[in-house]
Structure formats: C-alpha cells, structure tokens
C-alpha cells in the first residue's frame, strides 16, 4: 500500500523545523497507538505466541505450572482419528460454503448489476440473514430440518452425519449469501463500461463478455470472497454449536468446535492449542493456494 504525501503542502510545513516536528509526531503517534495496541497486543498477538507455547505442554487450564511435553501433542494429533475426522469435515465444509458462495453471490450480483427495479429491496432481503445472529438462525433452521419440520421432505437431516454436514453447509451459505452479493456487486460496478462497449462492437455475445471480461476482472474479489468463506468456516463455531453441537457422530465437528470441546469440555488446553495451531497452518496454506490460483491479484492491470 502506498502512502501519498502532498508535495505542495511541504512548503507550509517549513514553518516548524522538520526534525522537531517529526520527533513530536513520534510521541503523538505512540500516544495514539498505545490504547489500541495494548488491547490487540494482549488479546490477539500475545495469544498467538502463547498458544504455540501451550501446544508443547499438557496444561489442563487450571494449574499454575505448565508441564512441558515437547512434541508429544503433535505426535498424538497425527494419530488421532477425531482430529482427522475434524480435518476432513472442515475441508468439505469450507469447500462447500465457498463454492456455493461464489456461484450464488456472483450469479445474483450479475442479475442485480444492470439497472433493475427493486435493487434496494433485494439487497435488503439478502442481507437479512447476514445481520441476524447465528444462534437465532440456527435455532430456526433446526426446527425446519427436523423430520416432521416443514422443509424436511421426509429426511432426517440432522440425524445422519453426512446429511448434517450438508445442512450446516446450506445454512452457512444461506446466511452469507447477502454478503457475497454485495461484495460482488461492488466489484462489478467498478468495471469500466467501455470494456463491454468495445466487446459488444467486436460482436462478443453476452456469455463471452461474462466469461472473458467480467469473471477475470472479478478475480481479486473472488479471492476475497473465498478467503472470507474459508475464514468463516474455519472459525465456524456458533452455527455448529446451535445446530448440531458437532454431531451426530462428529459429522459436523469443524476444527473450531474441536478446539473448544478439547479445551473446555475435556480440560486438555495443551492439546487443544496443538489442534488450533494445526488448524491455523491449514487456513494459511489454503489462503496461499487461493492467492496463487487467483494469480496473486495481479490481473488488475
């Protein structure tokens, strides 16, 4: 990111000697930053490091001392069927939510992009689930998914491990739909109209214009939507907690929920920290892959 300095203004600034002003700036900046950095440092940055240290212990969350166990937790994790299950569940969930999110978000945004009556209404409607709490929407969907619920179609959605994951994926995609629509709509509106006009003059069909102009130019936003979806699914806790509690038979136990259960239900803070670190490595790896696949956002040129 480039910070721009307005050159013309520097003539005015010469009224104060430059060095004194800069030193004064550093002090003011320190004062301005101190409160926010104290909070973020103590509750976000320090914990990232501290979780790494915890992952090398068998701490139970209560005792004052941290029994050091080296890499034992990592060895345990590598052989842990619950962890492997959670990994598979999280990846399937992440894939499902991002694919549904990109397709439905892009599709509806394209429809809303050309002048249409009721744009604000549609946007408002699609956004309703985004602003409603996860606990509230999951409470409602839980009833809708019940075998005798209005939308069950006779299936026991939450009683079967695979169907429960499908339910969770659908619920999450439904909840995030409005977010993806608005994000894509913003990106669509930033595409210069002359590109389409030129293509139309060359006789490009509507589909070819979508394929060769719209979709490539949206790549940075697609990167962002996928990243958002991946983070949301890896964070995924509230919906899982309220809809399935990770069940049945671990069918919806995403990594975030496994970390919570391992620490706060089983009291294995050290091991939970290990799983958290592994999960974070996976988020970073997937984000990096996504970045590479989208051409590193370089296609803006």
């Amino acid at each position: 990111m480039i910070t721009t300095q307005v050159a013309g203004a520097s003539a005015l600034r010469r009224a104060v000697p430059a060095r004194r002003r800069r030193r004064g700036d550093t002090w003011t900046a320190a004062l301005c930053l101190a409160p926010a950095l104290a909070v973020i440092g103590a509750f976000v940055i320090y914990p990232i490091v501290a979780t790494g240290r915890l992952s090398l212990t068998s701490w139970n969350g209560a005792t004052p001392e941290l029994p050091f166990v080296g890499l034992a937790n990592y060895a345990e994790m590598a052989a842990d069927p619950e962890f492997r299950n959670s990994l598979v569940v999280t990846i399937l969930y992440g894939l499902g939510v991002t694919v549904l999110g990109v397709v439905s978000g892009l599709g509806l945004a394209v429809l809303l992009n050309a002048p249409i009556r009721g744009l604000a209404l549609y946007r408002g409607i699609f956004f309703l689930p985004v602003v409603t709490s996860s606990i509230a929407v999951a409470t409602v969907w839980k009833y809708l998914f019940e075998p005798d619920g209005p939308f069950s179609a006779g299936l026991n959605w939450l009683g079967d491990p695979s169907l429960a994951l499908v339910s969770l994926t659908l619920l999450t995609a439904w909840k995030q739909l409005g977010l993806n629509v608005v994000l894509y709509l913003t990106a669509l509106q930033a595409i210069p109209a002359h590109l389409y006009e030129a293509a139309a003059l060359d006789g490009a069909t509507r589909w070819r214009r979508l394929r060769h102009i719209t979709i490539p130019l949206l790549a940075p936003m697609t990167f962002f939507v996928i990243l958002e979806g991946l983070i949301a699914t890896f964070q995924g806790f509230d919906l899982v907690y309220a809809l399935t509690q990770g069940g049945p038979l671990g069918g919806t136990e995403v990594l975030g929920f496994l970390v919570y259960r391992t620490a706060f239900a089983s009291g294995e803070f050290g091991y939970a920290a290990t799983i958290a670190y592994a999960g974070f490595a996976l988020v970073l790896g997937l984000s990096w892959m996504n970045w590479r696949l989208q051409g590193g956002g370089a296609r803006w040129s």
Partner: peptide
Amino acid sequence: TIFAVLVATMLVPTFLTMLPAFDL
C-alpha cells in the same frame, strides 16, 4: 510494519487466540 502486522492478524481465527486470552 506495525500496520501490516495488524492487518495480518485479521487472518487469525478466534480459536487460535481464545485459550491464552481466556487464561489472561
């Protein structure tokens, strides 16, 4: 540098920070 570090923390999932934050 400080700004970049802050932006990078937006990628960090809650479950990675919640155990030490809870302890604190």
